[in-house]
Design a protein around this nucleic acid. Structure first.
Length: 571
RNA sequence: CGGGGCGUAGCGCAGUUUGGCUAGCGCGCCUGCCUUGGGAGCAGGAGGUCGGAGGUUCAAAUCCUCUCGCCCCGACCA
């Protein structure tokens, strides 16, 4: 492609709409333009990259035995209702009413559609297993789109769904997808880590998230850098906090704490650290209020709490309920004297002589101790791991960092096949629910997170696998006939004979402009036709990433480029 | 949805507090000259519903009311 014939609108200045590097660079390099909040147009360069990613995803899905389908963006609400997810998606669902008054949704994901197809078309174990996938735009009315294509209202997702006759089959399908994901991200040249994730209300026992470490990531990763344990924030466990030794129990004492209701206020007022305090939160579980005890510096993990309680959902009690249950204003609840079930986090169960609310306005209790002063009905891990926690596997310090989720593999089990009655007859003629898995990849996110990790002050640095063009030819002076003739010759040779994607910067611009632009759009290999060519007929090859330069006579250019490809495609 | 900020040329911004003459600057764009190894220089030029509607005033980018859009923080994110 010749630069003058395509559209690569680069910008010298950073657009005011962008905050993070990848977003700024995608706009500055002319990959995307914002059309409205959370929706982006991909310009020619962006489209080339998008298609590179899609090609890799498609190849690896096919290699893993998945079969491609193409599903509608329009979805009837009744399928979502049937699976029970209409309320789950809630306001995230983008819907509209057609001319007949029927409400239709723009698909936020496609479990229901695929399951509907499969339940209609597959009835026998002989037709299983099968994994269907598609690459398509999804629509979600995000409360706050941000970071460019990292969180947008419409985004491209590869989603695959596996259907098996039993859990053994599911495990195989899952493993196969997991491995395909590794190959995809490896080929994209992206650094990623896999973390255990909670399968939550989705059912099933395992789920893994593929994360790109990044300080702009919205997900939190908890890892042990020693033994390799890694999980997301919802899932991560911490080694149990050991019991304090040789502590003599002090006598319980009531202290006035006028108008101090937060951990911070009370701690400051009484000069007690948050980790010597216990907060008492009233939750509603199964219609009944329960008390949840956590150390002052810890936060409740509702995912864990829900699971421990064996409920679908738990919710924080409202102020009226709290006052009714504790007999005091919000902010003064404590376990002593409570008549409801008390569930304590493990870190609370090993604590002595702590501070709690007194269930009495403007009053707290000092030197509270379990067993002596109140009874814990259940001890469990119901909090988020925090800095300072130890690895549950090897007791080494846990590392807490951020990441961008680019893929997620899920063992669904029978959640959707049960709800949507996707059943089959097994070899014994017995009707069974299909065992499902689902597997998603955020295609746009691969691009943004790659740029987030692979750029410098001059611009993007593409890996060979995703770059829109592998080579850019820069004739320093397009008005010099010899240079241009050589430029065209190399261009034809590489493009037509070697099948390499080449961009020829044929613009009548000063060299500085062209070099800056080439760096900004991140093309891995530059071929410069300039001073050296005039002097010795040699061409200069410069690598974007390392800055290395080589001089090559024109006749050796093709073999030289090919050997560079080999070098560059190694990690 | 709560809090904050912004909307002036394709992009980045000044001007708004304290209303006043033809609405400015940098980049980009067009023409010419000059230049050709890291975003040159000179000269000339095009480009504006000052987000929109209504109001106050002799006079509104500037003040008032309403409205639309965008960004940031938070909440939210199977």
């Amino acid at each position: 492609m010749k630069w003058s014939q395509t559209l690569i609108p680069t910008l010298k200045e950073s657009p005011s709409e962008a905050e993070i590097d990848s977003h700024k660079l995608m706009i500055r390099a002319g990959l995307i333009r914002r059309i409205t909040a959370g929706a982006y147009a991909y310009l020619p360069l962006g489209t080339l990259v998008l298609n590179k990613v899609i090609d890799i995803v498609r190849e690896e899905m096919n290699r893993a035995g998945a079969v491609e389908v193409f599903l509608p963006a329009l979805q009837p609400l009744d399928l979502l209702e049937e699976s029970g997810r209409l309320s789950v998606f809630g306001d995230d669902l983008i819907t509209f009413e057609d001319r007949h008054g029927k409400t239709t949704a723009l698909g936020p994901t496609h479990e229901e559609i695929v399951t509907d197809i499969v339940r209609n078309e597959i009835n026998s174990y002989r037709q299983l297993p099968i994994t269907l996938y598609q690459i398509q735009t999804k629509f979600r009315d995000e409360t706050r789109p941000r970071f460019g294509v990292l969180r947008s209202k419409e985004f491209i997702m590869k989603d695959a769904y596996s259907f098996d006759v039993d859990y053994e089959g599911l495990n195989k399908s899952y493993k196969s997808m997991y491995e395909a994901y590794c190959r995809i991200f490896d080929r994209c040249g992206i650094d990623y880590i896999v973390v255990e994730a909670d399968s939550g209300a989705m059912g099933g026992d395992v789920s893994h998230e593929f994360m790109v470490p990044s300080s702009v990531g919205e997900d939190i990763l908890i890892r042990c850098l020693k033994c390799g344990y890694s999980a997301n924030r919802e899932r991560a466990e911490a080694a149990p906090v050991p019991r304090e030794n040789h502590v003599s129990l002090q006598s319980l004492r009531e202290v006035p704490t006028p108008n101090k209701h937060t951990i911070q206020e009370v701690g400051g007022f009484l000069d007690v650290k948050p980790n010597r305090m216990v907060k008492t939160m009233i939750y509603i579980s199964n219609g009944q209020p329960i008390a949840v005890l956590l150390r002052g510096d810890h936060e409740v993990n509702e995912t864990k709490l829900t699971k421990v309680l064996g409920q679908e959902t738990v919710t924080l009690a409202d102020h009226n309920t709290i006052e009714h249950v504790t007999g005091a204003r919000v902010g003064f609840a404590g376990p002593v004297g409570l008549k409801i079930k008390i569930i304590a986090d493990q870190a609370v169960s090993t604590l002595c002589n702590f501070v709690t609310g007194a269930n009495k306005a403007d009053t707290h209790l000092l030197n509270v101790n379990p067993d002596r002063d109140f009874k814990i009905d259940q001890v469990a891990d119901i909090r988020y791991a925090v800095k300072g926690d130890k690895c549950p596997k090897c007791n080494h310090d846990l590392d807490i960092s951020q990441g961008i989720e680019i893929g997620h593999v899920f063992k669904l089990g029978t959640k959707y096949s049960d709800a949507l009655k996707a059943k089959f007859l097994d070899a014994n003629g017995k009707e069974k629910s299909m065992i499902m898995g689902c597997y998603g990849i955020g295609v746009n996110r691969i691009i943004a997170s790659l740029i987030e990790r692979s750029h410098d002050e001059n611009g993007i640095i593409w890996p060979l696998s995703l770059t829109p063009y592998k080579v850019i030819i820069i004739p320093v002076n397009v008005n010099d006939a010899n240079s241009m003739q050589m430029a065209n010759h190399i261009y034809d040779d590489l493009t037509n004979i070697a099948g390499i994607e080449v961009l020829l910067d044929d613009r009548d611009q000063r060299p500085g402009v062209k070099f800056k632009d080439a760096d900004l759009i991140g093309i891995p290999i530059k071929i410069v036709i300039g001073k050296k060519f005039a002097e010795t007929k040699e061409l200069e090859i410069k690598l974007r990433k390392s800055g290395e330069t080589f001089l090559t006579p024109p006749e050796e250019m093709r073999s030289r480029i090919e050997s560079l490809f080999e070098m560059l495609s190694k990690p």
